[in-house]
Each structure stands twice: as structure tokens, then as C-alpha cells.
Design a protein around this nucleic acid. Structure first.
Lengths: 684, 684
DNA sequence: TTTCTTCTCACCTATGTGTTAACA
DNA sequence: CTTGTTAACACATAGGTGAGAAGA
């Protein structure tokens, strides 16, 4: 069942690299930031788990002492080593996007998400249903939003067209679900909502919100990590799921009236704009009417509980029928794929809205929303129309762009029957033709004993108003933390190891409006404490390496970070070779056929973008895509999204599975988290 | 610095008692429920910490396996044993009640708290400021509300009078602050608010709210536990702080108009009832007017962070000056102590409100709000009036009741200068004369390797709307869990060990109103999932013993629980001897002079009530009471509340301190938590 | 201009208040 | 009649919407 080599590797790396913030070789850190294609780089096989762990803790502790000299950290390290990952865990995660029909409606029009300085939620809330987890094992569920391509867009003549190269991306932050870590049983009990995540265009955001560039296209990603402690994320295997229908263009104001109307029709908070009253334009009235309030957002959760909650968990109330007839957006839209070079006017969104007033003149191919770099690899344009409730004028574009099929099938995204599971090997995330409602792409990566840039660009934990994040290796700034970037979320990290970091954040001022609690107000340490309050202890183990990495490695990686962040989105794949810091020790893929080496510590967007590319370039194995993304078929295959491409190391699926399972056994444990407190909100 | 004996005892007990849910002697559990006056019962001294820990884990694991046979639990145990408590921790907690002036205002009138089916917050939010903690050590902060006496009250002729014996108390739930565990630095950064705690009279409450009996008097308690995992609470040392001025009578509707007015004047949510508009009675208008909105409650915190909430830390916005002149309640009220037998018309509240319209006719002694049983022990009626901003007509009552002094001193409860620290040994909690604004009583108990009934009657973790709780050894139902009683809170426990328990909660239906999120609604497991979502993983260690205790010991303790819960409040102290389950192995006191053996697994109220009794009965050592409750003077004494009586074992203060410190070193670690998600709220 | 950003605002959800009337 | 409980209610806080004006 277990492969000692992999297990050992996974754990053994810690002491020699990530765990030594000060005196470890920089290359080790960098290596951790990228998927490893070189098994040789991992520690020698044959190490038993316990042994590896011991080595780890000892080394880590030694390193910490030397570097930090903090007596507490030593104890923490000691604790850490003892927290062994769960071993007897067997799982086969299946992920289903909730409210898929809604997403499809938005997607076919061209989803837009408003970003504001004070932070704006995504409207179709990103919510997934997870199955196949080990009931007792602990998992950390997270999401991030990465650039979908390297283009800048503009809405011209009622359609989105490329308007040049993308602007530099801010380091993306991982948003760790506030309930993390929790058992598989808990996660599977109900949909996992990420509605608390907020988007902003404020590059100086102090809340940990996800910073996006307006007029750029993004792709949300969902990650499952079997780990009992947030601090173990960097060393854990990520299973990544991408739902192409959730991509969107960030805007400061809605551009497409159809989107506006769709938002109004379904977002309960916009109920005031429905029909009567402040109706905007006539177009809208024509579009959406019947179905309203299908997807609710629950504002207060946590509370910190309420705040919790937050737990903080986000919950969305489904008051109206999800399948209610949504008048407005019934006609499918198709997008032509751009060539990925972001030439203006070269790509346009081809809109086919039969009932839309703003029917765009077809002909011009809109820029592909996703991975222009995958174009050449996208061969499969075939798509099945299960039961289009709408008028789905699926249009195949020879320009390497997959049509965004808007099939109403079993809107729930679950009952949808797939007559054709796209077997295409080279399907790119978000680019492959959506057969059965845009099957999610599943990516599984392992970051044995070091950080995986693709997933650990940053870790964000958010509560009610402040999204706390951890950004140890953000694409743009690996190991680089400014006060504004670093924020601990409730229960995300061990305060023990992070305390000193928080203290260094006193300069952060995030208290802007009346949302401040008396506690915050009365506290002599306004912001730092906000963070502290929300910071969650790790699962009983301190993770000194992190603390060290967060604070000390700053200087080491600054240059690399700057260099990486400057890379254009289109150069994601190539950047691996170009960037001197990214050339070695990439995390090795766990499941060859399904693994997708995530491109390195670039901008998060690049990572996602690069992923499909890498996949296509490396493997042609086809896997059926279904609604549920599951990395390992029965154990890992079919159910996975379309792009479960295999990575470079092509071992048998079975072997890969075993390896993964072995690793996973070492990773899960138990821990806990909690929501954030209200904290200061600066919506001004 | 460290005393191996104590350390060993603290840890060594686990394996042989609490850690063995099935095959350990029941007496062990019961013993754990009460403070130990018998050091002999602790394990042999000289055991080193590591050794003890090993023994612990081994025994625990073995016991679990035999009892539960859960493969996961084995792993969890393994993890647990490895999570060593922090050793090099030095702390000297000082606790200050926030908004003391406000509390005093209410207290002198006779605080009332509304309890509703859907749950009601306390209004003067229970909030404390903590100092003297070890910056890096992890602490769990919690509170509970226990019966103040065994009387039932009624409001007659504008005053509260005893109306007979108390009704049976429901098992009290510990409310663990959603930020727990967190570092001392975090806790000290700003006031720790427990405003999310909700009171209810619904005995079938599914939210984890604190269930109280209407027309009964209660006393909130605050506890500090140095522990890095909620699961370690049962084995950790509790430092308990009682602020007599926070006691209150639970009501379903306000009885005293003065209280109503005070609430309206200060609770921002009742702003609509201030002055203009719906003024109620004339009396109110006469009473409070100037100061309004002094204490704000922040609803959403966590959340998920609001998560923020989550997380949910509760925060209260202090918008108005805390020291603003509060017109209405400026005259102090005095209470005569009842004899503790709840004879009707025997006790009355003696009200001395100079400006109050409802001036009650003095003469009849109102029933003592606290520990009638402490009467005979209360000798000290002396009280110092530092700087009474109000008209404090302190009245000493020979009937063994301490006057509730309402000194306006340094309202903040911090700047108050104590000219006279009551040195009375026998001061009872809530009964002693309040010198400097009702100094809090500090109680420190250790529950080496087993549950302390006084503190671990139950553990509640709450989020925004649902208060999740853990009730392993509730007074009424030690180890007894009904689905409705057991709820995991975000990051409170290791889901690993608790997962199966949650699963058994599917029968719980808590979704009542529109507050349900779409997640909840769409989830096939409405309530169970709510819990899961909010459940927080333990700090990386599974606590199998707990899981076992929670689910399996049920049958074992049912009888005991029933017996214990049936005991009248007044019999708390005596019940120790009477209850066959409570006769052995009480947790030993840590600081002899300051420790107060908490009486056994009775109703929570009994515990608190019994505590003062026990203290008085056992020791006469006097300690100065100050505003800040600190267990150990400079290191443990003076600042503590009035009743820091010494327990039976009278060792030197210094020795006690060292012992405690040693133990504490073993307890702290690192972990995390988070708030709760909104979850289902059934406010109907 | 054109395109995009920022800000204020009305309107909504969600929930915490005491009032009030109905009820037991 | 008295005492206590409950639910509906108006009104508060807190915060999530897009509209639309004002800038840039």
C-alpha cells in the first residue's frame, strides 16, 4: 500500500529546506516553489516515516534555534514533528460545482465580477460539493483565483475584446476555507462555500482579500489537501479542481447589461433592483425575470463565529428554485479563442444571444478567457449537447477555443448525464470544450517537503470582513511579506510560531469604518491584534519553519519574487526555464495520468495558465471528464475534470495512486480552525 | 522552577482515568469532576514530563483501541501523546472585567437577562481584559454560567424575592471563546469578548446555547486554561475568575423597569426605544438618559470570519464614553443575603435607589444572589469606598450577605484604586462585600488526567448563531450527550476524533428560519452538517479519549449524571460527600492559598456555589481582592478576586506558584481555531 | 470623447432589541 | 386577577447590492 520512498520524501525534505529559515540553501526554497519533475531531488528512498519525521523535527529545531533563538519555537518544533499525518486514509475525492446552472448562465454571457476597494464578494458564490473523502481524515480546503490568461480586455461594442497584454499580477492569496482543517465527514456533509472570499483592486489591501486587475480574466481554483494543520500545506499533496465555467473578468463596474441583470435576478442583496423600482434599462427587463433569489449569500456567519464562522463557514441560502426558469439568459454564448498573444481586436467574444437585445454581431472572435497558450494543444472541439434547455448554439472555433457550452441538463451539476466524456489529452483548463457542463479539471500535485508555488503561492484565511492570508511563496513575491500582505487568519496558523510576525504588522492600518468592534477600538494594537484575533492556532503543532520563512527569508527571495512577478502571463510555461530560481526540483506529480505539474512561482495566474500548457505538452492521455472532479477515477480517474493530464513522469496509474495514497497517509491528522472575528472592515 | 511531581501528576493521570473511556474505573471520572484535596490520589511524584506523557499516550491509546476499535483513533492518540504541553511558560494572568461600571449599574439594580427560545445575548456583554499571560503560550479562554444559588425568584412589589427552591438545572455548557486556542499575546492584545454567547430557556436547544431557568439567579465565570488543544481541556489547569457584579436573574421578560431602561440606554440595538418614540413608562424616562450607546455589540464577527468572523471573535464597539454620566442608575443598591434555604418572603432585595422611582421598601432582605451556603462563612462586611461616583450606600447585612457595592471608581475596572483589599478568607463569590468594584474571585483548579466537573461540565464553542459546545462532563449529565446537547464548534475539537459523534447527530434539526444558507438548505444532512462545518479541528492531535467519552461512556455515566443533576443547588458542598460518585480523587489545587476547590459534578450552578463554600470551609487565609483577578499575587495573589481562598493543601504561595508554573509548562502548545459559520439559526 | 474608476446612495438581507398583545 | 411565557412587531446595527454621478 505504501511506498516508503514517497513517504520519506514527503517528510524528509522539511528539515533540510523549508524548516530552516536562515541557514538553508536558497535553492531549496525555490525548488519547493515548483512542482518537482525530478524525483532525484527528493530525499533518498527507504526512509521510514517516523525516521523522516525525526530528522525533520531535529533539523528544523536546530535551524530554528540557530536562526531565531526563540525558546518557544523550539517547543513548537518539537510538537510539530510529533504530529504525524494520518496514514490509513483512503479517499477518492469527487468535487461538484454547486449552482452550476447559474454559473453556466453567467459563463455563457461572460461572467463579470466587480472588484472594489473595500472588497466585493463573488456573486455566483463559489461553492462545491465534495464526496469521496475519508470520513475521519482531516482536510484543508482552499481556493485561489489565478489569471486565466495574459490579456487585458475591454468591453467594446457589447463584447469583450482583448486590449493588450495583461498588467502585472499581484501575488495571489490562497483562501483557506475557514472550517479548515476539518474531517472529510464534515466537508462532505454539505457544500463547501467560499462566499466569504472578497475581491479587490486595492493593491494595498490589508484584509487579505484577493487582489485582481480590473479588465483581466481570472479562473477560480479549488484545492483539497489532506492535512491536519495549515502549516503542513506546503508539504502536502494538493488536489486541484478547476471549473472552467467559473472564470470571469474582473471589472470595477459591470460592462455587460446581461450580467448586471443576471446578478440582480439572483443575488438576494440586489433584490432592490429587480423589476419594479429602479429598473435600469429595458434590456434587462426583457432578459431575466422569473427566477429570482436563487442563490443567497449569507452575510453573517461566523462569527467568528459568527463571526464566526466563521465560522465562519459561508452558507448560502437557496430560497428560490435553482432550476427556476431564468428568463434573461437563455441563449448560449460562444467565445472564440484568442491566440494567446493578446493582440487587440484580434479576439472577440462571439455572442449568440437569441433573445438578447444586445446581440453582438458575430464574426469577431472574442479573446479566449482561458489559457491562450493552450490553444495549440486543444484539439477536441467536440461537445455533446445533452439536453439544452436553452438555445445552445454551440459553435466550434478553429482558433483553438472551446465553446462554452451552456447546457441546462441537470442544472444541479450533478444529475447531468455525460454522453461523451471528452477523452482529449490536451484539454486545457477552461479551454476544453465543455461537454457536460464544463467538467472541472483536476490537478494533483505533491510538494514534498517544500512549497509548491502552484498552490502555496499564498495562503489566505478569511473571516467575516478580513480575509487573512498567508503568503509564504506568492508568485510575485515568494517568501516575501509586507505587512499589508501578511495576515493571519483565525485558526490558520500556529500563533506561537507566528506571533512575532504579527507583531511586526503593527504598521498596518485597516480600520476604516464603523465596523470596528469596541475591542479593536480599545486595543492598543489596532491592526496587529485584528490579525491575532483571527489567527487560528495550528493544530497543536507549531510550525517554526513557516514563521521563519515568513519573516526571515524575506530578503532572500525578494529579488526572485520581483523577477517572477514581472513575468508576463503568457510566459508561464516558459518562465520555468527562464527564471533562474525556478529551474530545479519541481514537486513531482502524484498521479501521472492525472497530475498536472503546476508551473512555478510565477504570478498565480500564470500558474493556472501554465498548468494546462504543461499538461498538454507532457501527456496526451485522455480521461473522461465528468461533472465531478476526482483525481483518481474510481480511485482517481474518470470523474476528474477534463484536463487531468499527466505530468512528465509517466508511471502507471496504479503506481501513482499507490504513491499518492502513501503520501496522503502521512499527511492527514487532526486539527481545528475557526472563523474570524468581525475585525476591522474598511469599506469606507 | 519546575516541580516534577506536579508536572508528572498533571500528565500522568490521563492514561489511567480520563483517557480510558471504557475500561477505566468510573470513580476516576467522577473524581476528575471535582477539585482534589487529596494529593495522595495523584500519581507518584518524580515522574518526568516526557515519561508521564508517554505513559499517558500509551495508556490512552490502548484504552481507546480496546474500547472503540477505531483505527483512526489510534492515529489520533498517537498524535495526541506527541503534542507536548509548553514547558517554558511563565505567566501570571490578570483579568479585568470590561465595562465594569456598566455592570455595576446593572448589578446594583439587579441585573436581568432575557432568555428566549431562539437565544438571547447577554447585554452587558461579558468581556474581560487579560494580562500577564505568556506571550507565546497557547491558551484557551472560556466561560460558563452557573446557578448562583438554589433559589427561584419572583419580582414582587418592585423587588426580587425568593419564591422557593430552584428548579433543576440543565447541564451547563462551557462556552469556549471562538479564538481559542490562541497565544497569550493575542489574548492580551485586546479585550476578550464573549458576546456571542446566547442564553435560552429552550431545554431542547440545538444550538449549544446556554440553557437557563427563568427567574433563577446565575453567575458567569471566566476561565483561563493554558492548553494548545481543546481536547486537552479536561487535563489542564483551570484558572477561574468570577466577577460578582456580573450575576443576573434570567427572565423571559424584564421585570424591573430600571433594568429595561438601562438596557435601552446602553444597548445599541435597543436604540429605537430611547427617549423619543416608543418610550415605555414614565419611570424610565426619569431614569436613564444621558449616556447611551456606551456598549456596543458587534453582531457579525466571524465569520467566517466573519468569518470573520468568526471567527469570530466577538468584538464590541465602544462608541460612547464608558464613563459617560448614566443618569438613571446612579444610586447603589444593596442586597440582603438570604439564608440560603430559599424560603419565600424570607429574602428580599433591599433597594436603595435614591433617584429611582421604584424605590423599594427596605427592610425585607432579598435573597442572596450568590451562594446562600456561604453565609455563615462570610465574615467580612467591610468594604472600601474608593471614589464612589455614585451614591454608594453600602449596607452591611448581618445576614451573611455582602453588599453589592456600586462604586463608580475607575469605571473601566482598571484604574480603580484599591485602598482596601478585603483580606477575608471566607468571602464567598458574589457574596463578599465588594470593596473596589467587586473584585473577581480567582479559582485555580487542576484536573490532572481527568475531567474537572467544575470546569469541564461542558465545553461550548460558539460561532455566529450556533453555539457549539462540548459537554463531556456536564454536571447534570457527565459524559452524557444527546444529539441536541452535543455540537462541535469550529476548531474546537479534533474532528477526527469526533467525527463519528457528529454523524450521530443527524437527528438534530435546528433549521428554523431563513437564516439558513443555501448550503445548509441544499445539504442532505441539515443539522449534522451545520455542526461539522463549525467544528474546528483540534490542534493537530486527535483526542480519542474524548470521542470515546462523548459517545460511549454515555451509558456509564447516565445514572451518575441523573443523580448529580437532581441534587439541589444548596447541597453542592455536601453533595461531595453524599454523591457516591464524587467521593474520590478530586483535582488538587494548584495554588494552595488561592485555589478554591470547585465542588463536584453537580449542576454547574452548584459548582460555583459550592466553590465559595468549600473555600471558606477549608481555609481562612485572607487575600486582598483587587479589580484584576490574578491567581498568584504579584505572581498570584492580591489582584485576584476577593475569594481567592486557599484550598485544603496549604503549601507556601511560592511553592504553589512554582508547581503551577511547572504544570503550565506542560500544557501550552499551539493550535488554532476559527469562528463558526452562520449555520442554521432558529430564531423563528 | 471614451473608457474606466471611485464614491454615495437607496434598497436589500440578516440579525439583535424591547414592546406589546395574546396566552397560559 | 396575578404571574409568567410566547410570538409578532417596529426599530436598531451591520453589511451586501447595483445605480448613477463625478472624476480621471
Amino acid at each position: 500500500m505504501r511506498d516508503p520512498v514517497f513517504s520519506a520524501n514527503a517528510m524528509a525534505y522539511h528539515p533540510f529546506h523549508a524548516h530552516r529559515p536562515v541557514d538553508f540553501p536558497m535553492s531549496a526554497f525555490l525548488a519547493a516553489a515548483q512542482p518537482s519533475f525530478y524525483p532525484a531531488l527528493t530525499l533518498p528512498p527507504g526512509l521510514s516515516k517516523p525516521l523522516a519525521d525525526h530528522a525533520l523535527s531535529s533539523a528544523a529545531e536546530a535551524g530554528l534555534h540557530a536562526a531565531l533563538g526563540h525558546h518557544h519555537q523550539a517547543a513548537h518544533l518539537r510538537s510539530f514533528k510529533n504530529i504525524e499525518p494520518e496514514e490509513d486514509v483512503e479517499d477518492d475525492p469527487k468535487v461538484t460545482l454547486e449552482a452550476k446552472e447559474l454559473w453556466d448562465q453567467f459563463h455563457k454571457i461572460g461572467t463579470e465580477m466587480v472588484i472594489t476597494k473595500s472588497g466585493r464578494r463573488m456573486f455566483p458564490p463559489f461553492k462545491v460539493r465534495v464526496n469521496g473523502l475519508d470520513k475521519k481524515a482531516k482536510y484543508i480546503l482552499l481556493m485561489d483565483i489565478v489569471a486565466a490568461d495574459d490579456c487585458r480586455y475591454k468591453f467594446h461594442n457589447s463584447r469583450w475584446i482583448v486590449a493588450g497584454k495583461a498588467d502585472p499580477e499581484m501575488p495571489k492569496r490562497m483562501y483557506i476555507h475557514p472550517d479548515s482543517p476539518a474531517t472529510g465527514e464534515q466537508w462532505m456533509a454539505k457544500p463547501v462555500a467560499f462566499n466569504k472570499l472578497k475581491l479587490t483592486n486595492n493593491i494595498s489591501d490589508k484584509h487579505g482579500f484577493t487582489i485582481l486587475n480590473s479588465m483581466h480574466k481570472y479562473q477560480p481554483r479549488f484545492h483539497i489537501v489532506r492535512a491536519n494543520d495549515i502549516l503542513k500545506l506546503p508539504y502536502s499533496t494538493f488536489r486541484t479542481y478547476v471549473f472552467p465555467e467559473t472564470d470571469f473578468i474582473a471589472v470595477t463596474a459591470y460592462q455587460n447589461d446581461k450580467i448586471t441583470q443576471l446578478k440582480i435576478d439572483h443575488n438576494p442583496f440586489a433584490k432592490g433592483f429587480r423589476d419594479t423600482g429602479n429598473g435600469r434599462r429595458e434590456k434587462r427587463k426583457q432578459l431575466g425575470l422569473p427566477s429570482m433569489r436563487m442563490y443567497d449569500d449569507q452575510g453573517k456567519v461566523d462569527r467568528d463565529g459568527g463571526d464566526s464562522d466563521d465560522s465562519s463557514c459561508e452558507q448560502t441560502t437557496m430560497r428560490d428554485s435553482v432550476h427556476s426558469p431564468n428568463g434573461p439568459v437563455t441563449s448560449p454564448l460562444k467565445f472564440n479563442i484568442s491566440r494567446g498573444d493578446c493582440n487587440e481586436s484580434d479576439h472577440e467574444l462571439e455572442e449568440h444571444d437569441d433573445r438578447s437585445i444586445r446581440v453582438s454581431s458575430p464574426g469577431q472572435g472574442p479573446p479566449s478567457p482561458l489559457s491562450p497558450h493552450c490553444e495549440d494543444r486543444v484539439k477536441d472541439k467536440s461537445h455533446l449537447q445533452k439536453k439544452g434547455e436553452y438555445l445552445d448554439s454551440r459553435k466550434e472555433n478553429d482558433s483553438n477555443f472551446s465553446i462554452r457550452n451552456l447546457e441546462k441538463d441537470k442544472l444541479d451539476g450533478r444529475t447531468l448525464k455525460e454522453s461523451d466524456t471528452s477523452k482529449k489529452d490536451g484539454d486545457c483548463v477552461g479551454l476544453r470544450t465543455v461537454k457536460e457542463g464544463l467538467s472541472p479539471l483536476m490537478v494533483q500535485t505533491e510538494s514534498p517537503s517544500h512549497f509548491s508555488a502552484s498552490h502555496l503561492q499564498s495562503l489566505a484565511l478569511s473571516g467575516l470582513h478580513n480575509q487573512h492570508f498567508f503568503n509564504p511563496l506568492s508568485t510575485g513575491q515568494p517568501f516575501l511579506f509586507h505587512p499589508g500582505q501578511f495576515a493571519m487568519a483565525p485558526s490558520a496558523f500556529s500563533t506561537m510560531g507566528m506571533g512575532h510576525l504579527l507583531a511586526s504588522m503593527s504598521g498596518v492600518s485597516g480600520l476604516e469604518n464603523g465596523s470596528l468592534s469596541s475591542q479593536s477600538t480599545s486595543s492598543p494594537y489596532p491592526f496587529p491584534f485584528q490579525l491575532s484575533q483571527h489567527m487560528l492556532a495550528s493544530q497543536g503543532i507549531s510550525m517554526p519553519p513557516f514563521g521563519g520563512l515568513l519573516s526571515y527569508p524575506y530578503t532572500y527571495m525578494a529579488a526572485a519574487a520581483a523577477a517572477a512577478s514581472a513575468l508576463p502571463a503568457g510566459s508561464a510555461a516558459s518562465s520555468l526555464g527562464r527564471n533562474p530560481f525556478l529551474s530545479s526540483t519541481r514537486p513531482r506529480l502524484r498521479f501521472s495520468p492525472y497530475q498536472i505539474p503546476v508551473s512555478v512561482p510565477q504570478s498565480p495566474g500564470l500558474l493556472i495558465t501554465g498548468l494546462p500548457n504543461t499538461l498538454n505538452a507532457e501527456s496526451e492521455s485522455s480521461k473522461p471528464g465528468s461533472r465531478e472532479g476526482s483525481p483518481i477515477s474510481e480511485h482517481q480517474s474518470h470523474k476528474t475534470g477534463s484536463c487531468h493530464n499527466s505530468g512528465s513522469p509517466k508511471s502507471s496509474v496504479k503506481d501513482s495512486i499507490n504513491e499518492l495514497q502513501n503520501i496522503q497517509r502521512l499527511v492527514s491528522g487532526l486539527e481545528k480552525r475557526r472563523d474570524m472575528s468581525p475585525s476591522d472592515d474598511s469599506p469606507k
